[in-house]
Simulated scan of single mutants.
Amino acid sequence: MRVAAIQMNSTDDRDRNLAVADRLVRAAAADGAALVVLPEKWSVLGTPEQLADGAEPLDGPAISWACATARELGIDLVAGSIVERVEGREKRSNTSVHVGPDGEIRATYRKVHLFDVEVGGRVYRESDGEEPGEQLVCSELTAGGEPVSLGMGICYDLRFPELFRILALRGAQVVTLPSAFTLATTRDHWEVLLRARAIENQCFMVAPNQIGVSPPGNRSGGRSLIVDPWGLVLATAPDAETHVAAELDLARLAEIRARLPSLANRRPGAYAWPKAAL
């Protein structure tokens, strides 16, 4: 199964972002990708005010384009994440959408872990304008032939291994992680964490990242990655708006899980969460 990760330098200009996404998704499909994944907040990325202005419902321009394009190209498309406006809610959601090759929405995942941190000299407070999701989500890929189980995460989720272990225990073979990782954390943590999640859970990780500067001067680090269940990097993006692609060997995944059965060797009865919280 061939997959592709799309790397973008999204800004607050939605029309421009949609045009770039359309060009790169089509290039990835022409490269043979049956699954294409866009980065986090690919349709609008900017200040809190710009994100609020660019928020849209699931039947808005971004996901409508994703549905039409997936159907036209006959691919599974994970439309990164968008800033979703939900009727009746004051705050927005950071929402990843899986669209099947028939153009229908197969799964919707709302980011569970919000990025409330200080890093690289900047303070980020996603919770000021967004609310966390409450459910972990698996879907199913069909464009490549045989069904493949898909787990879904977004960016900061990468630092919470529990999420990925649960997805693996639910059968996820491929996990997508659309991201806008900061420049500082991309340099020092991005590849290490992605390879660790792939090794721990014996799954493929497809992780498209934002690259470059977005308003109000935030910098994302690029280096979009595709990683195999042994932790080997199959593809890395250069510092540009582009796509990278790789073949996923599902037979190798099954062999790794059979020969080094760490998922099967778990002992849930011995695990207990400490009562004292940090």
Rank of each mutant, 00 (worst) to 15 (best):
residue 2 R to K: 12
residue 247 E to N: 13
residue 107 A to H: 11
residue 70 A to W: 04
residue 154 I to G: 07
residue 178 P to Y: 09
residue 88 G to T: 09
residue 242 T to C: 09
residue 24 L to M: 00
residue 95 T to H: 08
residue 87 E to A: 15
residue 166 I to M: 07
residue 250 L to V: 06
residue 169 L to N: 10
residue 193 L to H: 12
residue 125 R to D: 07
residue 234 L to N: 04
residue 246 A to T: 06
residue 24 L to N: 01
residue 267 R to N: 09
residue 237 A to E: 03
residue 68 A to S: 15
residue 57 P to N: 07
residue 272 A to S: 14
residue 152 M to G: 08
residue 192 V to C: 05
residue 136 L to S: 03
residue 41 K to R: 15
residue 29 A to F: 02
residue 158 L to S: 13
residue 78 V to Q: 08
residue 45 L to K: 15
residue 186 T to H: 03
residue 110 R to C: 09
residue 171 G to Q: 02
residue 114 L to G: 04
residue 147 P to C: 08
residue 208 P to F: 03
residue 218 N to W: 09
residue 66 A to K: 09
residue 132 P to D: 00
residue 96 S to N: 04
residue 224 S to Y: 05
residue 167 L to G: 05
residue 8 M to H: 09
residue 166 I to V: 13
residue 254 A to Q: 14
residue 69 T to Q: 14
residue 91 K to I: 04
residue 172 A to V: 04
residue 263 L to A: 03
residue 203 C to T: 15
residue 207 A to G: 10
residue 160 F to M: 09
residue 177 L to Y: 11
residue 162 E to Q: 12
residue 237 A to L: 02
residue 204 F to D: 00
residue 151 G to K: 10
residue 106 R to M: 09
residue 109 Y to Q: 04
residue 78 V to E: 04
residue 55 A to G: 12
residue 143 A to L: 03
residue 59 D to C: 02
residue 7 Q to P: 03
residue 43 S to C: 08
residue 38 L to E: 02
residue 89 R to C: 12
residue 67 C to I: 00
residue 54 G to C: 08
residue 190 W to Q: 12
residue 229 P to N: 10
residue 137 V to P: 00
residue 206 V to H: 01
residue 137 V to H: 01
residue 277 A to Y: 13
residue 110 R to A: 10
residue 95 T to M: 07
residue 69 T to I: 12
residue 19 A to W: 06
residue 38 L to Y: 03
residue 204 F to K: 05
residue 258 A to V: 00
residue 131 E to I: 01
residue 53 D to Q: 15
residue 103 G to R: 05
residue 177 L to H: 14
residue 193 L to W: 14
residue 203 C to L: 14
residue 206 V to K: 02
residue 28 A to K: 01
residue 33 A to T: 03
residue 125 R to S: 04
residue 17 N to H: 11
residue 35 L to W: 00
residue 229 P to I: 07
residue 153 G to F: 02
residue 24 L to A: 06
residue 79 A to I: 05
residue 161 P to C: 00
residue 95 T to A: 07
residue 226 I to A: 01
residue 53 D to G: 10
residue 23 R to K: 12
residue 123 V to E: 14
residue 113 H to G: 00
residue 169 L to Q: 11
residue 147 P to Y: 03
residue 153 G to P: 00
residue 194 L to Y: 12
residue 166 I to G: 00
residue 162 E to T: 10
residue 91 K to N: 01
residue 199 I to H: 11
residue 254 A to M: 04
residue 194 L to M: 13
residue 230 W to H: 13
residue 31 D to M: 01
residue 154 I to K: 09
residue 147 P to A: 08
residue 260 L to D: 15
residue 256 I to H: 06
residue 197 R to D: 04
residue 162 E to A: 12
residue 84 E to L: 07
residue 100 G to S: 10
residue 29 A to G: 05
residue 132 P to S: 04
residue 26 R to M: 09
residue 125 R to P: 05
residue 248 L to P: 06
residue 174 V to E: 02
residue 106 R to Q: 14
residue 155 C to L: 06
residue 46 G to V: 02
residue 50 Q to P: 03
residue 93 S to M: 14
residue 14 R to T: 11
residue 140 E to Y: 01
residue 82 I to K: 10
residue 108 T to G: 01
residue 227 V to W: 11
residue 201 N to Y: 01
residue 93 S to H: 14
residue 20 V to R: 15
residue 19 A to E: 14
residue 88 G to Q: 08
residue 115 F to N: 13
residue 38 L to V: 03
